[in-house]
């Protein structure tokens, strides 16, 4: 399963709003669960825990251990780490 997390606005500058979350979904037509830190959380909790985008985690849901942490491209000019994450989770599911 896949979860898209919109963790901050402008790389840790401020929390995401519901309007921004909806715009994110609409822009990319995201077909999976898409979430943000819940208001009134202004502490950027997810950003502080998980680090700066663009990062992809693969988590074993039976143990909640991180199987892979893939650091992607922060410029947006190159292939996102999400691509590598998809390849790797498919391999895990087939193993």
């Amino acid at each position: 399963m896949i979860v898209e997390l919109l963790e901050s606005n402008n790389i840790g500058s401020s929390p995401v709003t519901m309007t921004q979350l909806k715009a994110w979904v609409d822009t990319y037509k995201i077909p999976v669960t898409t979430v943000m830190d819940p208001p009134p959380d202004t502490g950027l909790t997810s950003y502080k825990v998980l680090g700066q985008r663009e990062t992809t985690y693969i988590v074993d849901l039976r143990t909640m251990k991180i199987v892979k942490r893939i650091l992607g491209d922060v410029t947006g000019a190159f292939t996102p780490g999400l691509d590598s994450g998809i390849t790797q989770i498919i391999a895990l599911l087939k193993a």
């Binding site: 399963m1 896949i2 979860v3 898209e4 997390l5 919109l6 963790e7 901050s8 606005n9 402008n10 790389i11 840790g12 995401v16 519901m18 921004q20 909806k22 715009a23 994110w24 979904v25 609409d26 037509k29 995201i30 077909p31 999976v32 669960t33 898409t34 979430v35 819940p38 997810s46 998980l50 680090g51 700066q52 985008r53 663009e54 990062t55 992809t56 985690y57 693969i58 988590v59 074993d60 849901l61 039976r62 909640m64 199987v67 780490g81 999400l82 994450g85 998809i86 989770i89 895990l92 599911l93």
Partner: peptide, 30 residues
């Protein structure tokens, strides 16, 4: 598309309780 679905609380524990094997968590920034 996700925004046709309910806007509700969610957590990593909710993902765990689906009983599925792996989660791909993609971290983005607006």
């Amino acid at each position: 598309v996700a925004d046709t679905k309910p806007y509700v609380d969610y957590s990593l524990d909710d993902a765990r309780r689906t009983g599925r094997k792996y989660l791909l968590l993609h971290v983005s920034d607006f």
